[in-house]
Computed example of a mutant assay.
Amino acid sequence: MATLAKDVMRGYLDAIVLNVLRRGESYGYQVTKDINAAAHGAYTINEATLYTVFKRLEKGGCISGRWGDESQGGRRKYYAITASGQALLAAERANWTLAQQTLEELINGD
Score class of each variant (00 low, 15 high):
residue 49 T to H: 14
residue 49 T to I: 13
residue 49 T to G: 14
residue 49 T to Y: 08
residue 50 L to Y: 10
residue 50 L to Q: 04
residue 50 L to M: 09
residue 50 L to C: 09
residue 51 Y to W: 12
residue 51 Y to T: 09
residue 51 Y to F: 14
residue 51 Y to S: 07
residue 51 Y to Q: 07
residue 52 T to D: 12
residue 52 T to V: 09
residue 54 F to N: 04
residue 55 K to P: 03
residue 55 K to N: 11
residue 55 K to C: 05
residue 55 K to L: 10
residue 55 K to V: 05
residue 56 R to M: 03
residue 56 R to I: 03
residue 56 R to G: 01
residue 57 L to H: 02
residue 57 L to P: 01
residue 58 E to N: 00
residue 58 E to L: 02
residue 58 E to G: 02
residue 59 K to P: 01
residue 60 G to H: 04
residue 60 G to S: 06
residue 61 G to A: 01
residue 62 C to E: 04
residue 62 C to Y: 04
residue 63 I to R: 00
residue 63 I to Y: 00
residue 63 I to G: 01
residue 63 I to L: 00
residue 63 I to D: 00
residue 64 S to P: 00
residue 64 S to N: 03
residue 65 G to V: 04
residue 65 G to R: 01
residue 66 R to T: 05
residue 66 R to L: 07
residue 66 R to W: 09
residue 67 W to F: 04
residue 68 G to E: 14
residue 68 G to V: 15
residue 69 D to R: 12
residue 69 D to Y: 12
residue 69 D to T: 14
residue 70 E to H: 14
residue 70 E to A: 13
residue 70 E to L: 09
residue 71 S to D: 13
residue 71 S to T: 13
residue 71 S to F: 14
residue 72 Q to R: 11
residue 72 Q to N: 13
residue 72 Q to C: 12
residue 72 Q to W: 08
residue 73 G to D: 11
residue 73 G to K: 06
residue 74 G to H: 08
residue 74 G to F: 08
residue 74 G to L: 10
residue 75 R to S: 08
residue 75 R to I: 08
residue 76 R to N: 15
residue 76 R to H: 15
residue 76 R to S: 14
residue 76 R to C: 13
residue 77 K to I: 15
residue 78 Y to R: 10
residue 78 Y to W: 11
residue 79 Y to D: 08
residue 79 Y to G: 07
residue 79 Y to P: 06
residue 79 Y to L: 13
residue 79 Y to M: 11
